[in-house]
Nucleic acid binder design. Structure first.
Lengths: 229, 229
DNA sequence: GTTCGTGTCGAACGTCGTTCGTGACGAACA
DNA sequence: TGTTCGTCACGAACGACGTTCGACACGAAC
């Protein structure tokens, strides 16, 4: 308090925050949202914070931990549902769709999720919520336990696919891509691919959300069918 | 010094094959099987072939094409089924399990599959086979068309998870990992995680194959339930 | 004997994740 | 007030990656 000349270090650099794990993650999430996972490199992150890559390693042990931390933040964005047995199915759909949407909004993060089944508190809360909804629907304990492994698996895989489609959509018009796909199916030799050529319209119909909803729906149908038996 | 090195190029190197796309892929598959996808780098591949990285680019346009080619080979390994309506379900299970096994036997290749929905002839033959089996089971055309998108999705995602577990199993004893997981679940505060702590045994029971079979089974249950309605 | 196209590959470029050693700065202490 | 000390910041470098370029060798064609 006696020696004031230290104001210099904070004046020539315009209000640089003192670097913290949260601050780093904030910037990382920003890059992730706007440019995708591949753009979030240690160097880019450091550059965005006006420093060198080495400075990050004080707060974050490495790239993998950073990615897991980003995934955790995304997992924390999904709104949980308070279980109501009268509408457990709609609630489960909302929950899974929220997870899908959160991942799609952060391109590439889903690939982290498929590789590292997350065990952070936020992810576990989502799993807890899923279990509660499944049990509210009368699903067997064992089925519920295994299903809450499969449902996120379907969701993350769908998110990866959606991210790829989205990326392709930026390069060429989305309609062009679908059209090319239809033509590719139609061009197949019907003798060797009778079903594929016959079902070409069905295979290419529907957008990502519809197909995802279908996937969850069929799976839940299977679960309730088992619950009855 | 100029004249003697005539036959040397073929003598001091022991029968070096003249480098072809198939030959490169053979070596790549070998490394993939034994050390996983991450070990298959252009440099490593070139080194294994007694040459430099640049030589590979004559036959393979880049890393991504190489990975897709490897994935195609793996897809070609699954045995297809000749549809029999009397046992379509068992056949579908065999087909999907074959796909899973082929991927698990080539660690890391599944991550390529989730990112690039493959459109090679071999992959399309597998899709054609799946469609035939689904229709043999009386599944609606639209449901079959969408399901043959979801089933491989579940399979590849399961393969990624299996690969991760397998990798963890190399680092520490597999039993230790499961045990740690059980303890982690048990250590959760039961007030906030009532279902997770209650179902801890169910969540951690069963190996990868059992869980995969369950996932496919539930999904098929859902499909037949829809076919009836 | 000369030319030419083709397959080969050493060397280099730019990017990545990560580590190391130095330096600056504030707090504690004499 | 002067000195020490631990903590944080970060420039520089290391090794590995994918990819490109340009020079070289060699068999076929003229």
């Amino acid at each position: 308090m006696a020696s004031p000349p230290r104001a210099r270090s904070t004046r020539d650099r315009p209000a640089k925050p003192p670097l913290s794990e949260d601050g780093i993650l904030d910037v990382a999430m920003l890059i992730l949202r706007e440019e995708g996972l591949e753009a979030v490199t240690m160097r880019r992150l450091a550059g965005e914070l006006d420093t060198g890559p080495a400075s990050l390693y004080v707060y974050i042990s490495g790239r993998d931990e950073l990615r897991n931390a980003m995934l955790d933040r995304v997992a924390g964005m999904v709104e949980l549902e308070t279980p109501d047995p009268a509408q457990w199915r709609a609630q489960l759909h909302r929950l899974m769709h929220g997870l899908l949407a959160a991942m799609v909004a952060h391109p590439g993060i889903a690939t982290v999720a498929v590789a590292n089944p997350p065990t952070t508190e936020r992810s576990l809360l989502a799993a807890e919520n899923m279990l509660a909804l499944l049990r509210a629907g009368g699903v067997t304990d064992r089925d519920a336990g295994w299903a809450c492994d499969i449902l996120p698996l379907i969701t993350t895989a769908s998110a990866v696919e959606a991210a790829v489609h989205q990326q392709r959509g930026q390069e060429e018009s989305d309609g062009d891509f679908v059209q090319r796909l239809v033509q590719a199916f139609a061009a197949l030799p019907p003798a060797r691919f009778p079903n594929l050529t016959a079902l070409a319209p069905e295979m290419t119909s529907g957008d990502g959300d519809e197909r995802f909803r279908f996937a969850i729906d069929v799976f839940l149908d299977g679960l309730v069918a088992r619950a009855k038996a």
